[in-house]
Design a protein around this nucleic acid. Structure first.
Length: 273
DNA sequence: AAATGAACCTGTTTGC
DNA sequence: TGCAAACAGGTTCATT
């Protein structure tokens, strides 16, 4: 479900709701996520104030007082929403943080590919989940030149390259397809056959696609929602993703679906070369 | 080293 | 109608 825009939308919606609140207790109903939830370690959240809400790649970071950070990853189907403390436990609600505001931060994740852990804030950069992560696509460092540099010695398809978190983070299956369409680049094109000029176009396309999606509240296909449970509406702006058989909004040719690395790829055969 | 495929898990859609 | 296969927004591991 959540790629960079969705996590950023969640971050922005959550920030004003929880910064300044103190976590009174933590409840874990099911610890079997992507990695087992460490209940004892999570107990350290008790009595801590949430001082900042940040994002790195697709990870949401809740900085707590006294130098520790709650790390949350939504996997494919995760949701993090703020509800009344007394609300009934929802199906697939695996854990929750009860706040002093009489609300609880509910983590629900149908497929359990998500992740929740506590880490020392100062140790985050070196944590195994973060140490190999590539460029933030909305940062100054993300340029066509940087992409081209990272592509040296590689020959694989550009779509897989864009989805490789060691190169650039936050771009998943939806936005890789959309950014390549925007840039006019065929998803199967080898990274060894992309000109310097087109690398710049691509970097701009990735940036613009992600920013537009954030502005529109993210993409809700099935169940993405922000901290208040609101859906995003970027899905109406999708040009190619899940639109096989429909006309390309730019040139009118019919959108095609292929499979790359076991994932669906959607593209326009007319304007993507 | 880079590229590929499979695995993790549950729910929904598609095809026979 | 019923059942099985295919598929879904991510990440990581094993194998070429």
């Amino acid at each position: 479900m959540p790629e960079l825009p969705e996590v950023e939308v969640l971050r922005r919606s959550l920030e004003p709701l929880v910064v300044g609140a103190t976590i009174e207790s933590v409840r874990v109903w099911n610890s079997a996520l992507r990695e087992p939830v460490d209940r004892r370690r999570l107990e350290r959240c008790r009595g801590r104030e949430i001082v900042e809400v940040r994002r790195r790649a697709k990870y949401l970071l809740l900085d707590l007082a006294a130098g520790e950070t709650l790390v949350v990853h939504l996997g494919m189907s995760g949701r993090l929403t703020l509800v009344e403390a007394s609300a009934e436990r929802e199906l697939h609600e695996h854990l929750a943080f009860y706040l002093d505001s009489a609300q609880r931060l509910r983590f629900r994740d149908t497929r359990r590919f998500g992740l929740v852990l506590l880490q020392q804030t100062a140790e985050l950069a070196g944590d195994r989940h973060f140490v190999h992560l590539g460029l933030e696509p909305l940062s100054e460092a993300f340029t066509g030149g940087a992409l081209q540099e990272n592509a040296r010695g590689r020959r694989g398809p550009i779509k897989s390259f864009l989805m490789d978190g060691r190169i650039v983070v936050g771009v998943g299956n939806i936005y890789a397809a959309e950014a390549l369409h925007r840039a006019g680049i065929h998803p199967r094109r080898s990274v060894a056959r992309i000109s310097g000029k087109r690398w710049e176009t691509l970097a701009q396309s990735v940036r613009q696609t992600l920013s537009d999606a954030i502005d529109q509240g993210g993409t809700t296909l099935n169940d993405f929602a922000d901290a208040r449970g609101e859906s995003g509406y970027f899905s109406v702006s999708l040009s190619v993703y899940d639109r096989q058989g429909e006309p390309c909004p730019r040139c009118g040719r019919l959108i095609r679906r292929i499979v790359q690395g076991g994932r669906s790829t959607f593209y326009c055969p007319g304007c993507q070369r």
